[in-house]
Computed example of a mutant assay.
Amino acid sequence: MTHLARVAQEIKNIGLYDLVLQDVQKIADKTNVEENEILEIMQKNPQILEDYKQINVEYNLSNIHLRDIDMSLIAEKCKEKAKKVNENLSLLREIEKYTLDFEQSSTLVIIFSIEFFVLFSVQYFIVLLNLKEWQILIYSIFASSIAVAWWYGKKEQKKYIQNAKIFYEKYDETLAMIDILEKEGCIKKSDLIIEECEEHV
């Protein structure tokens, strides 16, 4: 569902992917690479595509370069499958963020940020406000916050794993359904491809 021609075009022309472009240039051993060369390099070096996808997920951009099927243009016999494809595409876009490694997710960054703030606050209360007689209680609260953060982190990590599994299952299912719809003459996959990202335009 990721349109490789679009990927190559975006890597070449959009600053968001400069680090990926630098990797491509390093592999190509030249600074000016064409889109067809980027496509070839992606074929031989799948990590380039993975890096592109990672950036998109981090910036809330979808790697699903397919639009929903226009139900008004679909024959009656195809509507049930087309509706299911649209539902799957919607779900995939919604849970795509869970394909990111939890260790690199914003959720973990937020947890660490909150804990850093709590630690700073603990030091502030004890040292600057001269609350040394309360330090055991304050440190206990800090320890409790670490326990809560650890529990929440584990819960979120489990959520990432579960949703990533659902994502990949639905991804394969949706691709198969699109292929069936195309074979049955209901749609043309090429009509569903989103050639460029509106967020970049």
Score class of each variant (00 low, 15 high):
residue 1 M to G: 03
residue 1 M to P: 02
residue 5 A to L: 08
residue 6 R to I: 04
residue 12 K to S: 05
residue 14 I to E: 13
residue 14 I to Y: 13
residue 16 L to E: 08
residue 16 L to R: 11
residue 16 L to G: 04
residue 16 L to K: 04
residue 18 D to Q: 13
residue 19 L to P: 08
residue 20 V to N: 00
residue 21 L to C: 01
residue 22 Q to P: 01
residue 23 D to W: 09
residue 25 Q to N: 14
residue 25 Q to H: 09
residue 26 K to N: 14
residue 26 K to C: 03
residue 27 I to M: 11
residue 29 D to S: 12
residue 30 K to S: 05
residue 31 T to I: 14
residue 31 T to C: 07
residue 34 E to W: 04
residue 35 E to W: 01
residue 38 I to A: 03
residue 44 K to Q: 14
residue 45 N to I: 01
residue 47 Q to R: 13
residue 48 I to H: 04
residue 48 I to Q: 00
residue 49 L to M: 10
residue 51 D to L: 10
residue 53 K to M: 10
residue 54 Q to R: 14
residue 55 I to Y: 03
residue 63 N to T: 08
residue 63 N to Y: 00
residue 63 N to S: 12
residue 65 H to W: 10
residue 65 H to A: 04
residue 66 L to K: 00
residue 67 R to S: 14
residue 68 D to L: 03
residue 70 D to Q: 08
residue 70 D to C: 03
residue 71 M to N: 04
residue 72 S to I: 07
residue 73 L to K: 13
residue 79 K to T: 00
residue 81 K to H: 00
residue 81 K to W: 01
residue 84 K to D: 00
residue 89 L to K: 01
residue 91 L to R: 07
residue 92 L to T: 01
residue 92 L to S: 02
residue 93 R to V: 03
residue 94 E to A: 09
residue 94 E to C: 05
residue 96 E to G: 09
residue 97 K to E: 11
residue 98 Y to C: 06
residue 99 T to C: 11
residue 99 T to E: 09
residue 100 L to W: 06
residue 102 F to E: 00
residue 104 Q to M: 10
residue 105 S to I: 07
residue 105 S to N: 07
residue 107 T to I: 12
residue 109 V to K: 14
residue 109 V to L: 11
residue 110 I to H: 09
residue 112 F to C: 06
residue 112 F to P: 01
residue 113 S to M: 12
residue 119 L to F: 14
residue 121 S to I: 08
residue 124 Y to D: 12
residue 126 I to M: 06
residue 127 V to L: 14
residue 128 L to M: 14
residue 132 K to V: 12
residue 132 K to T: 11
residue 133 E to Y: 14
residue 133 E to C: 05
residue 135 Q to S: 15
residue 136 I to H: 12
residue 136 I to Y: 15
residue 138 I to G: 03
residue 141 I to R: 10
residue 143 A to M: 07
residue 144 S to Y: 08
residue 145 S to A: 07
residue 145 S to E: 01
residue 147 A to Y: 13
residue 148 V to K: 04
residue 149 A to P: 02
residue 149 A to N: 08
residue 151 W to F: 15
residue 154 K to Q: 12
residue 154 K to F: 09
residue 155 K to N: 12
residue 155 K to T: 09
residue 156 E to V: 11
residue 156 E to C: 08
residue 157 Q to A: 13
residue 157 Q to R: 15
residue 158 K to C: 04
residue 161 I to M: 11
residue 163 N to G: 06
residue 163 N to R: 13
residue 164 A to F: 07
residue 165 K to A: 14
residue 165 K to W: 07
residue 166 I to E: 07
residue 166 I to W: 01
residue 168 Y to N: 12
residue 168 Y to C: 08
residue 169 E to R: 10
residue 169 E to H: 07
residue 172 D to A: 13
residue 174 T to H: 01
residue 175 L to A: 03
residue 176 A to H: 05
residue 177 M to N: 02
residue 178 I to D: 00
residue 179 D to S: 11
residue 180 I to Q: 09
residue 181 L to W: 02
residue 182 E to Q: 12
residue 183 K to G: 15
residue 186 C to W: 03
residue 189 K to V: 02
residue 190 S to R: 15
residue 191 D to Y: 06
residue 194 I to N: 11
residue 197 C to I: 14
residue 198 E to S: 15
residue 199 E to T: 11
residue 201 V to M: 11
